[in-house]
Write a protein that binds this DNA or RNA. Structure first.
Lengths: 187, 187
DNA sequence: GCCCGCATGTAACTGGTTACATGATTGT
DNA sequence: ACAATCATGTAACCAGTTACATGCGGGC
């Protein structure tokens, strides 16, 4: 029970899509869930070992020597459904960008502008990555049943990125305005 | 050096606006920075003690017995500027809602709809809280120099909330569509 | 006289990250 | 043969949360 059930959820969920090795699991979580979920390397193997002891996953005889594929067992599938219905535990917010902007008077308008411009560029890059992800999913007909749900998460990412871009533009305009009114009424 | 500089940033930043007690600091961080920053109770006092040892804050003679007001020293102000210019350290993403939707095939369409509806309601409530915050800031003329920066963070919160609402509507429509096509092509 | 809110702290725990250690397979 | 990548794990560390412990002052 030590490990957070959140990690178990991600691991069991990934294995519910297809069996894979711990290594592949790590990559799948990084690449596919990456934009809304993170699982650190050191969590995955202990979690797998734990889940195996509980009979939620089973390691298939090593196809290649040195590697073994993990697959969900029927009780593992039940466990996953159980975890998925648990209440969402909110992560405490920690937005370093907004914290800096909040103290913008001390940080200075110019630095605020740089941070905002950066955030906008990041959001634009994420938008491009979503296009790639879309294409990748479209090219996997075996996951047709899952794909519509995956699209929901991509859509969320897009909406969020667009919001950041719109806010950044508004923010940059506001920063110009702050600078101007500073020149008119210097301290 | 043990404590993360992020906590120091929040504490020094808050004291840069006005001197206050540790208790008031805690409340200020919860109420004002709350929508984009979190500092747990157990961090604030140790951080203050640390900052005092380094000479970045000074505790004013207790106005009332048992309490003491912390104020930023000149070197503390310098330290704050130094911290603010440090690179933003990204927090690993952990969005429990999107994780559940991603595994929506296992969770079920109905549960996905409930989660989405919930998320939308939360966003709408946050919008109302931003209105309150706006009014609060407008009623404090002594912070006129800071207010424009504070507005930037509120605006970010609003943009984000609007994005969640728009996405949720789209998401609910998509879930209806998934349900319909399931009935037409059952497994 | 008692309860509530202000105020200050500490200690234990837990979840998570990083870095380290190791070896097999595959392609060049 | 050698490098890169696949693969599996462990151990130490760190950040952050929770719960606990304590006491003052003011209002009812």
């Amino acid at each position: 029970m030590a490990r957070s059930s959140q990690t178990d959820m991600a691991v069991l969920g990934a294995l519910s899509i297809e069996p894979m090795t711990g290594y592949a699991l790590r990559e799948a979580i990084r690449d596919v869930l990456g934009h809304f979920w993170n699982e650190s390397f050191g969590q995955i193997y202990p979690a797998l070992a734990d889940l195996e002891r509980h009979g939620f996953v089973r390691r298939d005889g090593s196809v290649k020597r040195g590697s073994s594929t993990y697959a969900l067992t029927p009780s593992g599938a039940r466990r996953l459904r159980e975890l998925l219905t648990q209440p969402i535990q909110a992560v405490p917010a920690r937005n370093g960008l907004l914290l800096r902007l909040f103290f913008g008077r001390t940080l200075g308008v110019e630095a605020c502008r740089a941070l905002t411009t950066n955030a906008k560029a990041d959001a634009q890059q994420r938008l491009r990555q979503f296009d790639d992800l879309d294409a990748e999913i479209a090219g996997e007909p075996q996951h047709a049943d899952d794909a519509p749900f995956w699209q929901l998460t991509i859509s969320a990412g897009r909406h969020h990125a667009h919001a950041v871009i719109a806010w950044a533009d508004e923010c940059l305009a506001a920063l110009d305005h702050i600078e101007l009114s500073r020149r008119e009424h210097p301290q």
